[in-house]
Structure formats: C-alpha cells, structure tokens
C-alpha cells in the first residue's frame, strides 16, 4: 500500500522531530483515532456513508479542543477543506481524469481507486480543493490537495513552534534561601555531650506530666518512664539532683536542664 507508506514516512518524520524537540501535547487524542478508523476503512475499500460523518465530527471536535496549540488551526483548516470536497463526492476525494492522464495514467471516470480515498471525476465544482497538485520525483509520484499541504504545514508548526512543556521540578530540589536573620544566627554544630539528658529534656518538653514528676523526684521519674528507657550515668544523676535543688518550678527545672544539655 503506497498510501500507508506515505503515512508511515510522515509518522517517522514526526518522531524524528519530536526526538530532537519536545512539542506541546494536544488533548483528547482518542478523537483522532475515532476520526481515523473510517478513513482507514475508506482506503481499504470499506465505505460506509455514516462513518464519514463520524470522522468529520471527531476531527473538528479535536481541533476545537486544541485550537490554542500552534498549528492546530492550520490542521483544522486543511481537514475542513479536504472533508468538504470529500463530502461533496460521497466521502471520496475527487481526482480529475485529465490530471491522471497527464501523469500517464488513463482511468475511467467514476472509478474508485483502491488503496486510496480517491474517485476519478471528469470535473468538480470544488476541484480546487481536490487532489490536483502533482509531486513527481524519480522515486514516487504523489497527487495532493491544498488541504493536505495545509495539514502538513500545521503539523510542522506544531512540532517545531509549539512551546515546550515545562519540566517537572522535584520538590526536594527546590531550595529556599534563608532569611537575613537566619544567616546572621550562629548555629552550634555537633551533638550534645549529654545524650541521656537531651533525651530526658525532649521527653519532658513533650509531656508536662513527666516534667512535673521530674521536679519532685528526677531520678525515679527518669528511670520509670513507661515507653522510653533513659540510661543515666553517675554524672547525669548528679546533675539532675543539682538541678532539682535549684529549681522551684517546672519551668525553672526545664530551663536548667536545657542549659546543661547545651553545655551553657
């Protein structure tokens, strides 16, 4: 199938451009598949009149959904031009017999050309929109319509000129610069020299009941914590007893404990 080879070449060219540059992706591409299925049937010789309407509707809706993307309006214009003249000729693209004759192909008027969407006509009121632009090289001969050229231009515009989608930035890579006051603050790096007291201070800060018990009997409260074991050495126990002797309130006890933890 020469026509499907042409479509494959178009797809390959699109893939090469997209490999080099990321285009903006259109939405609702399922509509394009719905539009394409009747046209594939048309090429294969399965022509159902109602299906042509489905094809037209689907592609117009797709274009309306994506009209903001550069090139889509050109694709829409080309598609409307093609589908208009095809609707005039019962769902087949007309090609004039004299144009085929100029290229050396003599075909009877009214012949549906299998392997294409074309029907040979003597003339058409919409012949300007039909297949009449011949592209002839040593390798192949192709007869295209103005709508086809507009569609190719629209696809190239989309692939080459549509804005590239924004790249996702991982949240963890997002850096917040510290405020001026934070820059000036002097931070003491390293761990506390009193890990057991640090743990006890954090537990007391989180649990006011524990802080109250520490004020009354720090050694017993530290040893009898229901969830976390706080291994106190002799130095820690002596420190707690000294704090207990100085502190009168829970706040004072925690303040003294924090000062010992920080080594102040």
């Amino acid at each position: 199938m020469t026509l499907f080879t042409v479509y494959m070449i178009c797809a390959l060219a699109g893939a090469l451009i997209a490999f080099w540059r990321a285009p903006q992706w259109p939405r609702y591409s399922l509509l394009l598949i719905i539009a394409a299925v009747p046209q594939i049937g048309n090429v294969l010789g399965v022509r159902i009149s109602g299906m042509f309407l489905v094809s037209v509707t689907a592609i117009i809706v797709w274009c309306l959904c994506n009209y903001r993307i550069p090139g889509v309006l050109a694709v829409a214009g080309g598609a409307v031009m093609n589908l208009l003249v095809m609707a005039w000729h019962g769902g087949a693209m007309p090609v004039r017999a004299d144009i085929l004759a100029e290229l050396g192909y003599h075909v009877d008027v009214g012949t549906l050309l299998v392997g294409s969407k074309d029907v040979v006509v003597h003339g058409s009121p919409l012949w300007l929109l039909s297949d009449w632009l011949a592209i002839s090289t040593d390798l192949f001969t192709l007869i295209v319509s103005p709508g086809d050229i507009l569609i190719v231009g629209g696809i190239l515009t989309w692939l080459l000129l549509s804005p590239e989608p924004e790249r996702d930035q991982p949240m963890l890579a997002f850096r917040v610069s510290p405020m001026a006051s934070e820059k000036r603050a002097r931070l003491v790096q390293g761990q506390s020299a009193r890990p057991a007291l640090t743990r006890l201070a954090l537990l007391a800060a989180a649990d006011p009941a524990l802080a109250e018990r520490l004020l009354h009997d720090p050694l017993d409260a530290a040893a009898a914590h229901p969830h976390y074991r706080v291994p106190l050495d002799a130095h820690d126990r002596a420190t707690l007893v000294a704090i207990r002797a100085r502190a009168r309130t829970v706040g004072e006890f925690l303040g003294e404990l924090a000062a010992e933890v920080d080594g102040v």
């Binding site: 020469t2 026509l3 080879t5 042409v6 479509y7 494959m8 178009c10 797809a11 390959l12 060219a13 699109g14 893939a15 451009i17 997209a18 490999f19 285009p23 259109p26 591409s29 394009l32 598949i33 539009a35 394409a36 046209q39 594939i40 090429v43 094809s55 689907a58 592609i59 694709v75 080309g78 598609a79 093609n82 589908l83 095809m86 693209m93 085929l100 192909y105 075909v107 009877d108 012949t111 549906l112 050309l113 299998v114 392997g115 294409s116 969407k117 074309d118 297949d131 192949f140 001969t141 192709l142 007869i143 295209v144 319509s145 709508g147 086809d148 569609i151 190719v152 696809i155 692939l159």
Partner: peptide
C-alpha cells in the same frame, strides 16, 4: 509523536499515490 502524526495524516489527509492503485476496480 509518530502515532499522533500518523493518526492525523490518516484521518485528515487524502493524497493519491498512483503507482499503488492497481487493483481489480482500477484500470
């Protein structure tokens, strides 16, 4: 992109490649 371009081409374009049109209904 290949799938999208190919689908647009199939759905909207209607070129004719004469060398590939030989069949029983074509003369």
């Amino acid at each position: 992109a290949a799938l999208l371009v190919g689908t647009i081409a199939v759905a909207a374009t209607a070129p004719l490649a004469p060398p590939g049109t030989r069949s029983q209904t074509t003369s």
